[in-house]
């Protein structure tokens, strides 16, 4: 594997809720421009970890830096450099497409001109230009998801965190969504994506697989498949999950 400059580093990341250990000594590093897959079953602790990396939640212990900033003391600096798309795709349902773009662009400090240009750029690319003034709740789920992704990268962050971005949509939309992810990665933005669809894991540069709050495996999909002697990531996952 080529040696890249790291942009996320987590050493012994631990998060406890009372006696429950949601993240148990996670160790990983994500390289610049990488598509890093953060896999695991529902409840394995993916969202907990992603929230810590985004500065939405405090870790219990561990040394963690994101974009070179410390998650304990420099959360606000981290926030300037990341984009985040949550499971719920946080678009304002009662605002129009453009109003959503204008709002998020505005609070990230983009100028009016930049907001207009980038909105047009994304809508043009998604083929949703004619829906610019449509209220979000009138749009189908798949479109909302692509719009939410565009909003997460509107301010050109260095890293974008995607928390189960493809939940509940059809395979074609999922495929298109992954095309968007590749494009973003090509522009040099690091993509940190959680999913429980194992076929999506094949698209990632490297994946980590979480079982019950621990990282059980971390490598490229190829290496993992060879290691566990299976022909799909699904196989890798099943072997690991049964073991755990």
């Amino acid at each position: 594997m080529e040696q890249r400059e790291s942009i996320i580093e987590a050493i012994n990341l631990t998060k406890k809720f009372g006696n429950f250990v949601a993240n148990d000594n996670l160790n990983f590093m994500v390289g610049k421009g990488e598509i890093f897959g953060f896999l695991g079953a529902n409840g394995a602790g993916k969202t907990t970890a992603i929230k810590i990396l985004c500065g939405l939640s405090r870790p219990t212990s561990g040394n963690i830096t994101v974009a070179g900033f410390d998650v304990y003391t420099e959360r606000e600096k981290i926030k300037k450099n990341i984009g985040y798309m949550s499971q719920k795709f946080s678009l304002y349902e009662d605002l129009t497409v453009f109003e959503n773009f204008r709002f998020y662009g505005g609070i990230y400090g983009l100028s009016k001109k930049e907001i207009r240009e980038r909105t047009n750029y994304f809508l043009d690319k998604l083929g949703l230009m004619e829906y610019k003034d449509k209220v979000i709740n009138e749009l189908p789920l798949g479109w909302k998801q692509k719009l939410a992704f565009s909003l997460a990268i509107l301010h050109k962050p260095r890293i974008v965190f995607l928390d189960e971005p493809t939940g509940g949509v059809d395979p074609i939309t999922r495929r298109q969504f992954w095309d968007m992810i590749y494009e973003v990665a090509n522009d040099g933005i690091t993509v940190f994506v959680t999913t429980h669809y194992m076929d999506e894991a094949e698209y990632c540069g490297r994946v980590s697989i979480m079982v019950d709050g621990r990282i059980e495996a971390l490598d490229t999909p190829e290496t993992l498949k060879n290691k566990y002697e299976v022909d799909s990531m699904d196989g890798v996952f099943l072997k690991l999950a049964r073991k755990g």
């Binding site: 985004c54 500065g55 939405l56 926030k79 949550s86 946080s90 304002y92 609070i107 990230y108 400090g109």
Partner: peptide, 13 residues
């Protein structure tokens, strides 16, 4: 309730 606060909280606002 609708979850948008999380998106706000992740911005440098």
């Amino acid at each position: 309730e609708i979850g948008t606060i999380e998106q706000i909280n992740v911005t440098p606002i």
